[in-house]
Design a protein around this nucleic acid. Structure first.
Lengths: 140, 140
DNA sequence: TTGGATGCAAAAGATTTGCACTCCC
DNA sequence: GGGAGTGCAAATCTTTTGCATCCAA
């Protein structure tokens, strides 16, 4: 972990925040608040889940992470704030990053006065693992 | 309401189910379970929210409605089960249907073994109403 | 008649809130 | 030193579950 890297983010640096930032750094697994809480608790046994939510909210406000509202029933957080999209497995709820060929556009006359700031594409399907599992069930 | 229309849906028809179907018929507002509950309660004061959830789950299983997991914190239901996408207002959480120019595709070599069954595009932005409101706040 | 549907209440899960205490800038 | 951040507990909100009763087919 490198504190200096986080110096100029515009947020007050606390040990808890550093721990969350450090945990998320480069993570590709789109962890939930609970996942993050469990991980950070190893370093800070007294940290509370409310603090984790506070921190995640702050990081989101400062565009250091993205919040995904996809998949079943909880928020998930993504340290990759660059423009990207997701593959969602309907079998195991895995979320994977994915690149697309071309940014989708709204059809002519359909914008309804919206000022679009972000486009997010979700591909729903079955991951390889779940597909194999399903095939085995069918054969059985 | 036309009971006959619903005759061959493959589900047992109860008055509560008919009321929910009837309420959703043609709705473009993507109501939540609570919205539906409040509306149907006018006709069936004794209906319970659990029953509403049961019914919505059944309708979803039978592909009579779609469930959206988008926007802030609750499920929303859409009687339009055809292929479409959404505009999401980050100001007021309004959800509007929208058509797109071209179905997005995954970039070469990015599929990761997923078998894609559905693509959903979310356009985040501010609706006209919220944009005006924001402008007024800035000027003030 | 009978299995699935309903209604109620309680439980569960995720997130938020209020508030006193702490500590980073 | 002061204001923002933290920890704790309780509250809230949405959804699910268990179970006795009911009713559509």
């Amino acid at each position: 972990m490198n504190i200096n890297k986080y110096r100029n983010l515009g947020i007050k640096l606390t040990p808890q925040r550093l721990a969350v930032l450090d945990y998320l750094e480069g993570k590709k697994s789109h962890p939930s608040a609970e996942d993050i809480y469990q991980a950070v608790k190893k370093q800070f046994p007294t940290i509370s889940i409310a603090t984790v939510y506070n921190i995640l909210e702050t990081l989101k406000q400062n565009e250091l992470i993205q919040e995904l509202r996809t998949g079943p029933y909880k928020k998930r957080f993504d340290p990759n704030t660059s423009w990207h999209h997701h593959l969602l497995c309907t079998g195991c709820n895995r979320v994977e990053d994915v690149a697309i060929k071309k940014i989708p556009e709204i059809a002519a006359g359909e914008g309804q006065g919206f000022e679009i700031s972000k486009v997010h594409v979700e591909f729903y399907g079955l991951c390889q693992k779940c597909r194999l599992k399903k095939n085995q069930e069918v054969k059985r």
